[in-house]
Amino acid sequence: MAGLKLLKSLALHDDKCWSVDVNNGGIMATGSTDRKIKLVDIRSFQIIEELDDTAHKKTVRSVAWRPHSNILAAGSFDSTVSIWGKDDDGYNDENDLETELLAIIEGHENEIKCVAWSHDGELLATCSRDKSVWIWEADEMGEEFECISVLQEHSQDVKHVIWHQSLPLLASSSYDDTVRIWKDCDDDWECCAVLNGHEGTVWSSDFEKSNSNVRLCSGSDDGTVRIWCLEDDNGEYEQEWIQESILPKAHTRAVYSVNWSPKGYIASTGSDGRLVIYKESEDGWIVECIHELTHGVYETNMVKWVEYGSKDVILLITAGDDGHVNVWKFDEN
C-alpha cells in the first residue's frame, strides 16, 4: 500500500500559509497572510531569500513560478499582482543576485485569489472576487504586462485558475459552484464549457497531465472531488464536457486544493486537514492513502506534487493555517 512520510516541516510564517509553488530549479516560493514571500531550497530546506514584504499591503494569496524561469508572480488581497525576478544582466553569477520587484500589475477591483502562468510562460491568468479572470501577455523580461482579455462570465468570486499543460485551455473555478473552461479561438478567449455539478464553491481544479485524453479534477466546498472529461471538441467554440466520476468520499469538510500528478495520482486536501491520494484502477478510482492532520489541528490550504531532479523521488508539498509548509515523500508501493 502506498504511504506518505513527512520529510520536513518548515515553520515559515507566523500566520496562515495559503500557497506554495516550486520551480524546476528546486526553489519553493510561499505566500502568507503575514504578507511575506519566502524562497526555500527544496533540497536543503534552507530559506534562501525573503522578498520585500512591503510590496503588498495585505495577504499574499497565490504564488506561481513562470515555467523554466526564476520569475515569480504573486497575487494578493490588496488587488495587485507583484512580479519578481533576478535582474540577470548576464554579468555576475546568478545566485548571489537579489530577487527584486520587477512589476506591479493593477486592474482587478478587489482581492486576487489566484495567479497562473501558461505552460509556455507567455500568458499569466489572474482571477479575483470581482468575478473576472484577466489574461495578461508578459514580455520576455517579465517587466511589461498587457491585458489581452477580461473574462466576466462567472456570476461570483473566481477562486482558482489553471492552464492545461500543453493545450491552450484555461480552467477557472468559482464561488458560483461552477468550473468554466476557456479556449483561445484565434486570439480571443471564449468560454467553451461550463461544468455544473458541484453543490458548493469550487475551490480548485487541475488538468490531467496526459496528451491522450483531456480530463480535469475539481475540489469543492461540498467535500467532493470530481473528474470531468472532454467528450469532443467539435466546433471552434463549443466543448462538451461530462462529469465522468466523483472520487470516493474521503473528506468530511471543504476540499481547498486538488493536484493531478504526472503519474496519474490525484492529491486533495482541505478544511479537515486530510491529505488524500487517489489512483485510477480498472474498476474506477480508489483511495490510495489518507494522511490525517497534515498540519496538526489546523486547516490545510494547498497541496502540490513536485518532481524535479531525479524522477523516482515523488514529493508532495502542503501549506497550512499553522504557517508551516510540509514536505512529504510519497512512495507508491
Partner: peptide, 15 residues
C-alpha cells in the same frame, strides 16, 4: 450562510 462560512472571504474581511 455561504458568505459567513467562506474562510477566504472572512480572512479578507478581517484585513
Amino acid at each position: 450562510n455561504k458568505q459567513l462560512n467562506d474562510k477566504e472571504r472572512v480572512a479578507a474581511a478581517c484585513e
